[in-house]
Design a protein around this nucleic acid. Structure first.
Length: 426
DNA sequence: TCTGGGGTCCTAGGACCC
DNA sequence: TCTGGGGTCCTAGGACCC
């Protein structure tokens, strides 16, 4: 058995970097990308980080004069652009190993097991340069014997400029020193709650966690935490997951652009989220038999608060949008209370199976071969071709005052012919 | 005025069965 | 007088990730 080697390749400031690729004016400027609804900052260029702005800061809380003074550039998030750029990066990475796990929109684990005869730092450099050449995006590469250590190495590569974006923890003479450098909250798998608990117990860094007895770790952090501790010691417990398994639940939820007070408004917004969620369900050729609807007021406001949810089950699994919209309306009627300013609602579809395995109803018909599927396929085809939302349901509303805000959106440079950048000779 | 959205996994406890 | 025990399935809640 040869020992494992993992590389974690991670795009630096991914969303901000994507914007910079297509707008050279932004190079060297502090750039921030907002979440949906132009809510909080979710991505920051290094220049913006340097100014002390933190991820999670609400956009409106950044001082206008501060923005002007430092020429800060703020944009709504353009997921179409980022999704397309992500695909290009992953495509590029696939050239370097047959075994790749796309872990998120901006990072991938590569298995380099069996590549040990090479200088892996050198190989990492080559990966980095190639991605840069082919996509214009900067990445960092961390290499190690476990996924968790590859994460540590990646962090090290980012933080220390002499590493030039690539670090192989296996080649470092003093593993302990590296692990002591990693604060406990920066370990992959340790979130806010566990970090606080560990600190209370005197465990402040990755080295200390790796030296803590198994029994204690498992008791306090379940088997998941134990895996993390073992991985820090170099024992690989988390495998590469190459095939994407079908979703077990699909969530669609959004804050409203403006507060909603009436049942009708909530129904329309929620119907829109149903639409999206069931669309995603059909994309994977799945059907589902459970729908959960939830709603909540704005917890940041000093006003009466209310949150609730309800669930409906279908006798036979479905992917027929009207089934879901109707169910969502019934749930809302039950959980709605008048007199509140609602900020957000959402739906969750669960109990999902592949359509070919869906049970029949008492009439021996199933979603797959009755006309409901034909209607849905037709709608999906039209919307794919003509643009999302061309065909919709009246239940989803017409005016939609609650629709999300995206006021400073950049063009879809790579996915829309209209938005292809033009070059002019001067 | 304005504070994100979409996922996964594990465990404890209750229901139910024999 | 004595009031079981073990297995399985489901759900809610809590943790984590990006």
């Amino acid at each position: 058995m040869s020992h494992n080697i993992f590389a974690l390749v991670d795009c630096n400031s991914f969303y901000a970097s994507c914007e910079k690729v297509f707008n050279p004016d932004l190079i060297h400027k502090p750039v921030g990308i907002l979440s949906n609804n132009d809510g909080i900052i979710v991505a920051l260029s290094p220049e913006l980080k340097k100014l002390g702005v933190r991820r999670g800061t609400p956009g409106f809380k950044i001082d206008r004069s501060f923005i002007r003074k430092h020429d800060i550039q703020i944009f709504s998030s353009n997921y179409t652009l980022y999704g397309d750029m992500s695909g290009r990066v992953m495509q590029t990475l696939s050239q370097f190993t047959p075994d790749i796990e796309i872990y998120s929109i901006d990072e991938a684990f590569l298995s380099l097991t069996g590549f040990g005869y090479m200088d892996l730092t050198e190989y990492g450099r080559k990966i980095r340069e190639t991605v840069w050449q082919w996509t214009g995006l900067p990445v960092s590469v961390g290499i190690g014997p476990t996924k968790t250590l590859a994460k540590v190495a990646n962090r090290f590569a980012k933080k220390h400029s002499y590493a030039q974006g690539v670090f192989d923890i296996s080649q470092h003479p003093d593993r302990r020193k590296i692990l002591e450098w990693v604060e406990v909250e920066d370990i992959w798998g340790v979130g806010r709650q566990y970090a606080r608990m560990l600190r209370r117990n005197g465990i402040k860094n990755a080295y200390q966690l790796s030296q803590t007895p198994d029994k204690w770790v498992q008791k306090k952090m379940t088997i998941v935490g134990l895996r993390t501790a073992k991985e820090l010691r170099g024992i690989s417990c988390i495998d590469l997951e190459e095939d994407i398994d079908p979703k077990k639940e699909i969530v669609s939820s959004k804050s409203f652009g403006a507060p909603v007070t009436d049942l009708q408004g909530l129904m329309e917004a929620t119907a829109t989220y149903c639409l999206r969620a069931v669309e995603k369900l059909r994309e994977e050729n799945q059907v589902a038999s459970q729908l959960t609807v939830f709603l909540t007021t704005n917890r940041f406001k000093n006003e009466p608060q209310y949150a609730n949810y309800g669930t409906a089950r279908f006798p036979v699994p479905s992917a027929y949008t009207p089934d879901f919209i109707r169910a969502s309306q019934n749930i809302l009627k039950k959980i709605f209370r008048a007199g509140y300013k609602y900020k957000k609602s959402g739906v969750m579809i669960s109990d999902i199976i592949h359509e070919s395995r869906a049970p029949l109803d008492i009439f021996q018909s199933c979603y797959l071969d009755d006309k409901r599927k034909i209607i849905m396929d037709c709608m999906d085809a039209v919307n794919r071709k003509m643009g999302n939302g061309k065909l919709t349901y009246a239940a989803a509303g017409i005016r939609c005052p609650w629709k999300m805000k995206r006021e400073i959106l950049t063009p879809c440079y790579t996915t829309s012919w209209k938005h292809i950048p033009t070059v002019q000779a001067v």
